[in-house]
C-alpha cells in the first residue's frame, strides 16, 4: 500500500488580536499550497480566525502573555488545523446555532463565530480540559471543494 505523505506545519504566537492577520495569511498560503482554490482558502482562514478569536477572548480573556499553538496537517485529501490553548475552555452550549433576532436584541454575538466555523468547514471538533489543554480541530476535505 502506498504511504500517504503528510505535510506538517506549526506556529506558536502570543494570544493577541493583532496576530490574527498573520495567522490568516499563514493558513491561507498553506491551503493554496495544499490545492484549494482561493475561495476554499478564504473559508479556511476565516474559520481559523474565528477559532483563534474565541481562544483570545474566552479561553485567555485577552491575556497576551498566553500562547496559542496552531498545527496544520494535510495530505492530498484532508486539510486539518488544530488550535491548542491552556486557558479556561468555553461553554459548549455556545455550539448551538445562534438565534439572530435574540442576538440583535441582546447585542450579544459570541456564538456567531462558532456557527460560521461549522458552516465553513467539513468538521469542527472540540476537546476541553480547562487549564491544561483545550483543542479545536477544523477539517476541510480537498477533493471537490472550491
Amino acid at each position: 500500500m502506498k504511504k500517504i505523505r503528510k505535510s506538517r506545519y506549526k506556529i506558536r504566537f502570543p494570544s493577541r488580536t493583532e496576530n490574527l492577520e498573520v495567522v490568516r495569511d499563514f493558513v491561507h498560503r498553506l491551503a493554496l499550497k495544499a490545492g484549494f482554490k482561493s475561495e476554499g482558502a478564504d473559508q479556511i482562514s476565516l474559520a481559523v480566525d474565528e477559532a483563534c478569536t474565541n481562544v483570545i477572548k474566552h479561553a485567555h480573556q485577552y491575556n497576551a502573555r498566553r500562547m496559542i499553538d496552531l498545527n496544520v496537517i494535510y495530505d492530498d485529501k484532508k486539510f486539518e488545523i488544530i488550535i491548542t490553548d491552556k486557558g479556561k475552555g468555553f461553554d459548549p452550549k455556545l455550539l448551538e446555532k445562534p438565534d439572530l433576532s435574540k442576538y440583535m436584541h441582546e447585542a450579544k454575538m459570541g456564538g456567531l463565530g462558532i456557527h460560521l466555523m461549522k458552516t465553513l468547514m467539513d468538521e469542527v471538533n472540540y476537546s476541553f480540559n480547562p487549564g491544561s489543554k483545550n483543542q479545536v480541530s477544523l477539517v476541510k476535505y480537498i477533493h471537490g471543494t472550491a
Binding site: L20, L46, D49, E50, M104, H105, A107, M109, L112, L116
Partner: peptide, 16 residues
C-alpha cells in the same frame, strides 16, 4: 477586503 464575525457583531450591537 475581509470581515469576520467580530465585524458582523458591531452591526448587530448598534442596529437596535
Amino acid at each position: 477586503d475581509y470581515i469576520s464575525s467580530a465585524g458582523l457583531g458591531v452591526f448587530m450591537g448598534f442596529i437596535e
